[in-house]
Design a protein around this nucleic acid. Structure first.
Lengths: 200, 200, 200, 200
DNA sequence: AATGAATGAGCCTTCATTCAT
DNA sequence: CATGAATGAAGGCTCATTCAT
């Protein structure tokens, strides 16, 4: 990419970042079209290529930026002593939701990266998401050996919580605009319910 | 579509149906390409258009066929007296899994229809999936007023179960071949765990 | 490339070969446009890519074909006992001119390959022209140790003859149609004159 | 063009002239890119357009300037009594070579103008080169009715000398830098040889 | 004056669709 | 009925040109 991108007014940078992130997150790499970005960001076709060379370069930048920003925020928000499973997960979602104030599609972008399966870009998506996965894993490693109720498996719990959070997030993005408050409320409701039934 | 399709040998019909279903289910409408179908079904490009007119026509047929077939099977398998929530859900998944023996990608196709968001086909996908949704709703309406534990909401339970089943299914399709036995085992494991914690 | 190209009617194959060769030979790799080829060959845009994948693939095929065809003809026409410098050179030009009856731009294509300097294709052009260069070198190696007049250097003679033949050829292609008879006449005139002044 | 160009420091004027001339001469009109000029001249993109309006305007200026400068020098250098064919031709090349000290690509530019075949600019190139052609013709008109050897035609001699000089020049520009001394030496060698064989 | 960010027309390439065989 | 050659509209990308600073 062309580093002069960072000399642009922050406002324009963010307009471009958000435009690209929206289209990539919503449609996936292959179906994301330059024309869509032109429409949502109001920035001409040529400019994307001026700064990012090609579509793959743009994706690389956006995914990298998204994860770097998120991990930076996570580093701060996960600093405390939280050692309870759902607390940590909630904190992570809270952090994503807070990022959405500046980059509304960042939470969806993260999801989208995990599911990207276009041959051209899959490996890049995987490598860029890695630091986030590591961060989450690290945070969860600090969870107390909580006592699960009889019949509750940690693996299955992880799985269902993962799928449910993903689902809630995707639903949240089907509305016209991502409502981070409503999103967190739903997450909380779900976590509270689960907490009450799976722990002793 | 051209009804002479049904004059073809059943074998060839199914080869075409499975080929189209695989590509549509895996990639979604827009990214499903004629060439992919030619490859997986070994049927020439022109033939798809001969029978189905165009891509939208083919999608319409496949999604219709898939749901009709599924609902027929569901009608049979849901006939009994089952009135327990997870029993019904399991029966539904079991039915899908059994269909996979003839139409390996049918379960994924159903999922894919629910998520289709291509402007050109969205409405068709929605209208075609409707009977299945109705069927499920109808089946679930017969559920006993089960007594949920304090703190457990029916809506949230529906939601998390829905997302988790979807997630398990998608994982199952990431392997080279869909293994319906392993799939059902995983579903059962999950249902058993949930059953044990949410009900009194 | 797609070998099914050779299943096309010879007539159509040649129409495409000639169309591509004309545009490549006249304009060089970079400036040769698909649209030009569509115009001169009357074959649709997509078809070139159907058979040759991309522009570089098309160039690779055309240059290879051109040289293989030329070398085959040269093998025949240079078979005899000719050992006189200008006789051999004339035979070579005569062969090129005869090829022009089937592939009117082949002689210019050969020239064009020698001068191609687009970064993307330069190496391919060089590698493809090599067999022709070798053939010419081999033919000239059989030249009698002719006695040159005092003051005449073999190297300079080679050089000026090379540049002049190239020049005559380029002039010949500035007309609407390449006239192989007129071309050979001019070459002969020039060779005769040179012969009469440089040899004892 | 904008005449304020001439108010620039001579140094900058020449940097721009040389930059444009290099790119036009080496690549031809169509393939000459603004970015190349920016690179070789170190002058910003906008400035070229500020002074010359568009690419055609720039080409018009450069070709005009090049020929005017050359003809001015030729007027001086051809002033004497030279009446021998190769002497005159050599003087012309010597003059071009001397210009190359200030405008290194001027000799190649002249050549390039003669071969320009882009539809947009061909006519301009032709009209701009005309005065140079006239000058050369005029100079050659003063040649003594030299007695050519039997079998040597004046027309063919003109032709081969023209093509050979062009060829030598092009070779000279394939090196990293144009070496005017080596160039003139090669020309001289060639002329000497020709002189010795074509005249009585 | 000077810069280079910004634009959009045009070219290469893909792919749904048509059609001759 | 079947095939796959053929087409052209649309998307990625380049580059001359414009324009705000």
């Amino acid at each position: 990419m062309n580093d002069k991108f960072f000399d642009l007014k922050k406002e324009k940078q963010d307009k471009m970042i958000n435009g690209a992130m929206e289209v990539f997150a919503r449609k996936g790499y292959k179906l994301a079209s330059t024309d869509d970005m032109v429409k949502v960001a109001g920035v001409s076709k040529g400019l994307w290529f001026h700064y990012f060379g090609n579509k793959a370069g743009l994706y690389t930048f956006i995914s990298d930026y998204c994860i770097k920003y998120l991990n930076m925020e996570l580093t701060v928000s996960l600093m405390g002593e939280r050692t309870e499973y759902f607390d940590i997960l909630y904190k992570i979602e809270e952090t994503k939701a807070s990022i959405a104030k500046v980059y509304p599609f960042a939470p969806l972008m993260v999801q989208s990266m995990l599911e990207e399966d276009d041959d051209e870009i899959k490996e890049i998506a995987e490598s860029k998401i890695k630091p986030y996965k590591d961060k989450v894993e690290e945070a969860l490693s600090k969870v107390d050996e909580t006592i699960l109720k009889e019949g509750v498996s940690k693996d299955i719990l992880d799985m269902t919580v993962g799928f449910t959070v993903k689902g809630i997030r995707e639903e949240a993005y089907k509305k016209d605009e991502f409502d981070s408050v409503a999103y967190l409320e739903k997450i909380k409701e779900y976590f509270d319910m689960m907490k009450s039934v799976v722990f002793e």
